[in-house]
Design a protein around this nucleic acid. Structure first.
Lengths: 107, 107
DNA sequence: ATTGGTGCTACATATTACGTAGCGTTGCTA
DNA sequence: TAGCAACGCTACGTAATATGTAGCACCAAT
């Protein structure tokens, strides 16, 4: 489980172009979902697990370490929270939520 | 390989909330990379494969079918191209490319 | 001392992705 | 008309990831 960081050739990106490294990081199960659900505020491990529709603790734990390593979230006394960087990313994800609603009407 | 569409409970989303279905679809290897690389213009299968750092044909083919099923791209005489919907999504992905550059400087 | 909550980890199984080889087709060009 | 090259894939074995369930070690309150 290699941590995809810019510069590191990883799964789905041999070049390590920033955008491809980020896509690799976000393109793993629940990565974006975790960021999305954490935007509502800090959460403990188990609470976050519930918000994420009972994702398995294994996956959650691995993902949390990856996202923390990528400086998008961190663990605090209140549980896990987005970093400034993570909130910046969430702000970019947010419009995709709106898009998803329109998209869902096409089916 | 279930196609994640809104309403369908799929991998990473039991509820089928639009955003979660979309995250599931995009959270698969090369899904966002394909959209990103197709934004430069239509491409044949093999050309797209090169743009995506020689992703395996198996993965590429599966992903193309999923994204086409989700109406984000389609096959034309010029090869694969983004649909209007796909270009809309790309426009939302584009700022993430900018973010990725700033992010990459933190390491 | 027990109870209930926490953050995890172990482990077996299932799913997904990869890499390589190569098939069937189409469109040249010799 | 035979040969070749490029096309879009598909087959198939292996490797990497994700899942689900169980439960451990820790802590605080009862």
């Amino acid at each position: 489980m290699t941590l995809p960081l810019p510069g590191n050739p990883v799964r789905g990106s041999k070049t390590g172009q920033p955008i491809m490294a980020l896509f690799d990081l976000l393109g793993r199960s629940w990565a974006m979902g975790i960021i999305w659900n954490l935007s509502e505020g800090a959460a403990t491990f188990r609470e976050l697990q519930e918000r994420c529709e009972s994702v398995s603790p294994t996956t959650l734990n691995v993902r949390l370490k990856e996202l923390a390593g990528a400086k998008l979230l961190k663990r605090t006394v209140d549980g896990y929270t987005l970093t400034k960087l993570g909130r910046e990313l969430f702000d970019l994800l947010k419009p995709i939520g709106k898009f998803a609603k329109g998209w869902s009407k096409k089916f």
